[in-house]
């Protein structure tokens, strides 16, 4: 098996807002498939996604996306035609129907042939399962449906790169399941980058995972590797272990501790969430992350 060629190469991305370093020398590569971008709120996830979506330019550093350099106007416009972007809080013209809204974005994406454009709008709405309600006004749609409208517009023109900012936020478990099915399909042959602070999303559908914390990239690898970071750092105990970085009482009444275990501790198989929490945990585990 050969590793697929990377579709996105980011080098030393840096971005500052006032005194806040939203991105601090972030470098990574993306390959086709679904990559999850994990991180707590304020980690810089949205800033990073906006840079990749060419919504904003970084203060320093460079990105090469699908072989195109967004700093060059012609290549940037080219790139915008080949990427789909679902913002965290997509705005809607509420008096538009779902069809009209996606049609409007299709025009912004320069699909000018009316017939072909309308076909494409119907295609993406069907893809997200909204074809039955496409003639309803957006203000009459539920929150979950609106998220799907936002996803539909990102799928216009069958983009090679999909950038989804917190796509599962505010979805109920059933909607989340449908969403995972869809994104899983979309990830075949396409580069999908989605941000989330839900480790379940990553476990469920990502082949790669990156973790961003305070503007710095703390991890890139597979979900299994992220879980593996916590190997030997998760243990059971009857009482909360005071030496643990974090611990909680599980359903069995036992406590699950994360951190540096005492000698002879009852070690557990770590999950991706353990690895994630451990990375968030503190500087004493730097050597683990490295």
């Amino acid at each position: 098996m050969t590793t697929p060629a990377s579709t996105v190469q980011a080098r030393d991305l840096t971005m500052t807002f006032g005194r806040t370093r939203a991105l601090d020398g972030v470098s990574f590569e993306l390959v086709p498939g679904v990559t999850g971008l994990l991180g707590p709120n304020g980690a810089g996830k949205t800033t990073l996604l906006r840079v990749l979506a060419t919504v904003s330019a970084p203060d320093a550093g460079s990105v090469l996306t699908l072989g195109l350099d967004p700093r060059r106007t012609d290549q940037r416009l080219d790139l915008r035609g080949r990427l789909g972007y679902m913002p965290q809080e997509p705005g809607f013209h509420a008096h538009f129907t779902a069809f009209e809204f996606v049609d409007y974005v299709a025009i912004l994406k320069e699909l000018h042939q009316r017939r072909a454009r309308h076909e494409e709008v119907r295609r993406v709405l069907e893809l997200v399962g909204l074809d039955a309600v496409r003639r309803k006004k957006i203000k009459a749609l539920s929150g979950g449906m609106r998220r799907r409208v936002a996803l539909a517009q990102a799928l216009l023109g069958d983009p090679d790169l999909l950038i989804l900012d917190e796509p599962t936020a505010g979805l109920d478990p059933e909607q989340r399941l449908r969403f995972r099915e869809l994104v899983g399909q979309l990830g075949e042959g396409r580069t999908v980058l989605l941000s989330t602070h839900q480790t379940e999303d990553v476990v469920a559908l990502c082949q790669q995972v990156m973790m961003l914390h305070l503007g710095k990239l703390r991890f890139t690898g597979t979900p299994l590797e992220l879980a593996g970071l916590a190997q030997g750092h998760v243990w059971h105990s009857h009482k909360r272990d005071p030496g643990a970085l974090g611990a909680w009482r599980t359903g069995t009444g036992q406590h699950r501790n994360i951190g540096n275990p005492p000698a002879g501790a009852d070690l557990l198989e770590p999950t991706l969430e353990d690895g994630y929490l451990l990375l968030l945990g503190g500087d004493q585990f730097e050597e683990v992350a490295a």
């Binding site: 074809d131 039955a132 309600v133 496409r134 003639r135 309803k136 009459a140």
Partner: peptide, 11 residues
């Protein structure tokens, strides 16, 4: 017909 009145395209 009731579904159509609600804006259901499938119906």
């Amino acid at each position: 017909l009731a579904a159509v009145a609600e804006g259901d395209s499938d119906a």
